[in-house]
Amino acid sequence: MIPRPFEYHAPTALPEVIALLGQYGDEAKLLAGGHSLLPMMKLRFAGPGHLIDLRKVAELKGIALVGGEIHIGAMTTENELIFSTLLAKHLPLLAEVARQIADPQVRYKGTLGGDISHGDPGNDHPAVMMAMDATFVLAGAHGERLVKASEFFHGLYDTALTPGEVMTQIRLPLPPAGTGSSYAKLKRKTGDYATAAAAAVVQVKNSVCVQARIALTNVGPTALLAGDAAASLVGKTIDEAAIGHAAALAMKICDPTPDLRGDEAYKTAMAGQMVERALRTAAARCAI
C-alpha cells in the first residue's frame, strides 16, 4: 500500500495548472481530495509521474449566487456543500447527496469537481448534476468552455474532459418555485458506493407535474439520465401509480455490473425502488 515514486507540484493559480498539464501530458494527474486517486496509487493501479495538487488554487474554491445561478468552485469539499447556508436555502439537494457520500473525514477532503471529473459511475454527484441540469466549466490552454452535465459523461472513467483540461466550476440554475428534489441511495454501509441510487427533481403547479428530471447512479457505465421516466410524469399528478410507472421506465435503461452488492436483477430492481423513494420525497417537498 505504498505509491510508486512521482514528482509533486503545488501550483497557486489556474494558468500554472494548465501549463503543468501541458508540460507533462499523460504523465500528469490532478490531485483534488485524493480519496479516489491516492488509493489507486497505493494499490499501484495508477502510477503517474507527476502529481499536480490543486489545493492552493484559490479560483477553484467558493460558492456564490451569480444572477440566476449558483456557481461552485470545483475544489469545494463535500462538507463545505453540507455546511453552506447559501446551498441550504437554494439547492438543499446538494447537501442531501453530500451527506450520503463516503464518511465525515472523506467529506472534508473529497471535492465536488473531483467526484464529477473522475467519471466513476459509482460516484453520487454525476446523477445529481444531470437531474439539476448543471453546466461544467472546463479550462484548458484554449481558454474556457461549457459542457452540460447530460453531455459530460461518455463512459466508464471517460468524460468530456480532454487532455490538458481541468474542471474549474460547476454552475447550477436556481430551481423555479414549486420544485422539490431528493436523492435516494441504497448502500450496504457507510462509505460504500450505491447499490443503486436515484436523483429526482420535479416541479409541480396546481398539483400537476410540469417538469421532471430523474437520473440514476451505478446502474450503468455512467450515471444515467432517465428521460422517459421523467417525461412520463409531466402533465400528471405524482401519485403512486405515476411513481410506479416512472420507476418501471427507469429500470428499462439500467445496465448494471454484477458484484458483491448484487446481480443485474437486484440492482435494476433497486434502481426502481430508489426512483420511487426519490420521487415520493421530491413530490412531497414541492408542496412546502
Binding site: R188, K189, T190, G191, D192
Partner: peptide, 28 residues
C-alpha cells in the same frame, strides 16, 4: 448481517478489503 469472504471458481477471494467486508460503523 454482512460478513463473508466468498471465492470465485478460480479461487480468487472476493471482498478482501474494508470496502466490501462488513465492519459496521456507528450508523449501522
Amino acid at each position: 448481517m454482512g460478513q463473508e469472504l466468498p471465492y470465485d471458481e478460480q479461487g480468487n477471494v472476493l471482498g478482501g478489503t474494508l470496502m466490501d467486508y462488513f465492519l459496521p460503523t456507528s450508523m449501522e
